[in-house]
């Protein structure tokens, strides 16, 4: 361990430097607001944040969706999760709550995705709500049933990257540029990417909560005979 005094001095030094820098930021704040708003009509959406995320700086978002998939790959490679399976008929109160709450949450997620083109919202906000719904479902014991479909889970998790990469490939073939959408079609392509991303983000967040791979399937040695060669 680092001695307290050294650590305290180091922290204070970094704090002093950071404060000095922050206080010296230019008085006339430069920024890209004007440019971002100016190009908005060409972007295919009217919400500037969505325009930045999926058009101007779409490359960041592609890699970010990749980070999400990488994280779940890492978590699944590290440990096996516990998917509680409960019989909801024994818990009527929980069942009626979930029956109301889950559809509402899924609808909200979809609404956030749609509204993202015009107002605050988008795939990440929607994905977070969907992820919350999934956590609720897992806590309620619904996940026990889904985990038997590991291949479907894997496909759902990878969907965001697969669709995003495919859109990149298709639009590149159409326009010659990476993430360059054909004129006037930006909104449609963005919605397609966002829909796939929302599904994957929601699934990823929910399964990160579980914190491990499903107990059965090819990832688990001994549980199943390998049907094929290794």
């Amino acid at each position: 361990m680092i001695p307290r005094l050294v650590l305290g001095t180091l922290s204070l030094a970094v704090l002093a430097a950071l404060s000095w820098a922050v206080l010296s930021l230019p008085a006339q704040p430069p920024g890209l607001t004007a440019e971002a708003l100016g190009k908005l009509p060409e972007s295919g959406v009217t919400n500037p944040v969505t325009a930045v995320l999926l058009n101007y700086r779409g490359h960041d978002t592609l890699l970010e969706v990749a980070v999400l998939l990488l994280a779940i790959t890492g978590v699944w490679s590290l440990r096996q999760g516990e998917f509680p399976a409960a019989d909801l008929r024994e818990r009527p109160l929980l069942m009626s709550l979930l029956r109301v709450l889950l559809p509402v949450l899924v609808l909200t997620a979809g609404y956030l995705l749609w509204i993202g083109a015009f107002a605050p919202g988008g795939a990440f906000q929607g994905g977070a709500v969907a992820g919350g719904a999934l956590v609720l479902g897992i806590l309620g014991g619904l996940a026990g049933r889904w985990m038997r479909r590991e291949s479907l889970l894997r496909l759902g998790l990878a969907l965001g990257v697969l669709v995003f990469a495919s859109v990149c490939a298709v639009t590149k073939a159409l326009t010659g540029g990476l993430l360059q959408y054909p004129p006037g079609q930006g909104g449609v392509w963005i919605l397609l990417i966002e829909a796939a991303a929302l599904a994957s983000i929601g699934l990823t967040l929910g399964l990160l909560y579980v914190g491990g791979r499903p107990p059965a399937g090819p990832a688990e040695p001994g549980e199943k005979e390998p049907d094929g060669h290794g």
Binding site: G31, T33, A34, V49, A51, V52, L53
Partner: peptide, 9 residues
């Protein structure tokens, strides 16, 4: 003005 969307994103 409106907030800068770039750092926001």
């Amino acid at each position: 003005e409106a907030p800068d969307p770039v750092p926001h994103a």
